[in-house]
Design a protein around this nucleic acid. Structure first.
Lengths: 115, 115
DNA sequence: CTGTATCCTAACGGATACTG
DNA sequence: CAGTATCCGTTAGGATACAG
């Protein structure tokens, strides 16, 4: 059994990592098919996309709906719990935007918006 | 040069990972000496503590003050930028607390509060 | 007390090929 | 289209010893 010493650790376990927050962020805006997510989070590999979706599903943040048809169609959407992260994820984005502006002069990195 | 495609990635780079958010969370409550942090974040190794502090400092979130005395004394504190994360980190904690309550029944994990 | 230097392992994550 | 399986390199991170 996993043990945490601060609630912060719990949240980071759920939305931390390289892809979880990002995928959740897109799903919060509305349901998406697997291929749509693959395109939106365009640098993610097939493996990590599926793997991350499974973890989010296991943690009860998103749900998976499968349509029985050929070719297959699967749609992911946030649960109520996942949706409750919306204000937090938005705040994280806003902070990052502000931070980026202050750090741009240093030329340490770049941000490409491709929405 | 690092490239990001969403502001969310930027923030996660800064407070993500296993220790950054946690250390920042303690420093936001007030300046701390190295040994104090080591005690508070009690499961952290010497190596990760120093390494994480360096990264937070490089990102401009905390500052390091050294006293020239024997034995050495070093004190870390948040910068204005680091302090600006206070509402976000608090929100992350609250969410984790709420999430934990909903998940306790499953017996998947435990939380030990040792403040 | 604060910090550095090694060594070592496990997890993360990318590339590719393949299945229904 | 959606997903699985495998291989493999990189990195995160722990343990330990040591230095100023």
């Amino acid at each position: 059994m996993k043990t945490y010493y601060c609630d912060l650790e719990v949240t980071m376990e759920v939305i931390g990592g390289k892809w979880k927050g990002l995928i959740l962020y897109y799903l919060i805006k509305g349901p998406k098919r697997t291929s749509e997510l693959k395109r939106l989070v365009h640098s993610i590999s097939q493996k990590m996309l599926i793997q991350t979706l499974r973890e989010l599903e296991t943690n009860g943040l998103i749900s998976r709906k499968m349509y029985n048809q050929v070719p297959p169609k699967v749609e992911y959407s946030t649960t109520e719990l996942g949706q409750s992260l919306e204000p937090i994820l938005r705040a994280l984005c806003n902070w990052g935007d502000n931070y980026a502006e202050k750090s741009f002069a240093k030329g340490e990195f770049q941000i490409l918006h491709i929405d």
